[in-house]
Design a protein around this nucleic acid. Sequence first.
DNA 1: CGCCCCCGTGAAGAAGTTATGAAGCGCCCG
DNA 2: CGGGCGCTTCATAACTTCTTCACGGGGGCG
Lengths: 207, 207
Amino acid sequence: MQQEGYQVVTASNGREALFVAREHQPDLIVLDLMMPELDGWEFLRRHRQERNTPIIMLTARIEDMDKVAGLEMGADDYITKPFSPRELVARVRAVLRRLEPAAEKSDLLRAGALELDRAAHTLKKEGKLVELTRMEFDLLNTLMSSPGRAFSRLELLERTQGYAYDGYERTIDVHIKNLRKKIEADSANPLYILTVFGVGYRFNPDL
Amino acid sequence: MQQEGYQVVTASNGREALFVAREHQPDLIVLDLMMPELDGWEFLRRHRQERNTPIIMLTARIEDMDKVAGLEMGADDYITKPFSPRELVARVRAVLRRLEPAAEKSDLLRAGALELDRAAHTLKKEGKLVELTRMEFDLLNTLMSSPGRAFSRLELLERTQGYAYDGYERTIDVHIKNLRKKIEADSANPLYILTVFGVGYRFNPDL
DNA sequence: CGCCCCCGTGAAGAAGTTATGAAGCGCCCG
DNA sequence: CGGGCGCTTCATAACTTCTTCACGGGGGCG
């Protein structure tokens, strides 16, 4: 990787990896599933709560289930050992190229007095920073990504927690309530997050 | 794929594939490299000159060189045989999800001064937002989807509430009434939703 | 031309949906 | 090991929508 001009930092177990990832905020992570301390799955889960770094999974022997689970967990690609250096480089390049358009496409979503920074995972309202939990951020991000489009609670669950989840739909209501408390002037008369009765929620496109 | 709700078209060689791809403009292509007439590589090269459809490559035995070449050629992912149906579905989903933000188009139904936005679940009349209940929205959506076609009350019940319903057909009348009050200038002389005496209702196709 | 059936309509109760406060739980950090 | 935070669940209140019903008027058919 270094020969190809990439900067590389390494970690030798999951716990260290979390630390290093926080510190260096890499553009991409090559993740071995077999690690002491805190395995790849656990790392992936925790890391995803903080950032959305592209991840290539790396493992000796992937069974069908693992492949599927990995892709569903949000890995962007994986490689099975043995692999050649060339292949690794090619895959890294492919993933980065693939995500490039999304990255340069303004990472700021604006609407009214709101400014959602997807890279920094922060929200500003009238220039002032508003603290959001991961759930709230994901919800707002989803809604603001397609202003006007109505999302069902199930869709929102999927988008915020990944696939194959079958939880209690009403959970969404609670997060919406909390989100409104943070961004709406009058929660009873929302300006940003609108309720679509019998369907779900949508973000006000006329701002 | 069909069980998962995707529409599928197939081609059994590269030449046919080019034709089919032009015709149907699919959202994604699963491409086998081993094909008669015009192999996968050639198809990929030519197709790329026309469109930028996401492509998942499919092959029995991928050598290192091929992998690298494939990813560099611009395939978005690949699968090696044998693979499970689940894996294919998961990969297709992953690729589509990745590229989704670019795709979304709001589908609008227009007629006269009406503009029904099925994604947002809203109706605009002369540019002004009109509030619809879920029932009203579903009704109007059904009627406007096939302008001119007469729907019986039973059909409308089925379409708006799902099947296996045996309610009071006249319920529809009430919703039609309310709908007319919202969209017609003169409810007694409807312009949009016409009554078909003894049958049901239909949407005016001449607007 | 008149009868009978069908549709339009207002109102009210029934049914369904959302908002909200509070409690429980698990996880992470110190 | 305790505290704090965030996610989920639950119960309930407030609200919106749907269904039902009854009546009056209009349309179609003989």
